[in-house]
């Protein structure tokens, strides 16, 4: 596989959950005609390809990950700051530890909120549907879509908004029932 043909879709790799280190880390690359999803564990990589001509839909749905991190980091920061303010008799080592942890929590809290809303991105083709974990922020997901949208349009063409609407309405319309077959004498 020629490695030089691939470019990173995002510079970020991500595990679907940060807790279990055994869960593969996912990286997104894209080539001339497909997106490559690489799931890496310590000793192996597995690949999944989504060809631009086959991509049916990409869905971005916000989730509550940012709020959850705010709920975790906010009270932690508050407790650490309170402890630092109240416990003036603490030794240098403890004070330093509390201060560093509080600063770290504050930085993470600010970054979490500056990066914007978190989301799950789902890509669908005719034979598979999958999530793209590295596109975990709405802003990053839209930046990635800006990169690949022209490639998808180049591979598939583009429908006008009116054509898209008409096709969706066709799908929504109830199926026309077939007439029941009748014999020569309808007795």
């Amino acid at each position: 596989m020629p490695v030089s043909n691939y470019r990173r879709l995002t510079w970020r790799s991500r595990r679907p959950t940060r807790i279990a280190l055994a869960v593969p880390r996912t990286t997104l690359l894209f080539g001339d005609d497909h997106i490559l999803k690489v799931d890496s564990t310590l000793f192996a990589e597995s690949y999944k390809r989504f060809f631009f001509r086959d991509i049916q839909s990409i869905t971005i749905k916000t989730n509550r990950r940012r709020e959850i991190w705010n709920i975790v980091l906010g009270p932690l920061l508050a407790i650490l700051v309170l402890e630092r303010l109240l416990d003036t008799g603490a030794g240098n080592a403890l004070a330093a530890t509390v201060t560093i942890t509080a600063l770290l929590s504050a930085v993470l809290l600010v970054i979490n909120n500056l990066c914007g809303a978190t989301c799950d991105v789902r890509i669908q083709t005719a034979v598979q549907a999958d999530t793209l974990p590295p596109l975990s922020r709405v802003k990053r997901a839209n930046q990635a879509l800006e990169l690949i949208r022209p490639l998808i349009i180049q591979a598939q063409g583009q429908l006008t908004p009116e054509e898209t609407l008409a096709r969706v309405r066709e799908l929504a319309a109830p199926p026309v029932p077939k007439p029941a077959p009748t014999g020569p004498l309808n007795l």
Binding site: R53, D54, I55, Q56, S57, I58, T59, I60, K61, T62, N63, A117, Q124, T125, A126, V138, N142, L145, R149, I152, I153, Q156, G157, Q158, L159, T164, R167, V168, L171
Partner: peptide, 23 residues
């Protein structure tokens, strides 16, 4: 629409993009 809109069922913010392959 290239922007987030609330789902009519669960109010999650969604951005859906369909391509010709869908049809």
């Amino acid at each position: 629409q290239l922007q987030l809109a609330p789902c009519s069922g669960c109010n999650s913010l969604l951005q859906v993009e369909l391509f010709p392959a869908f049809f």
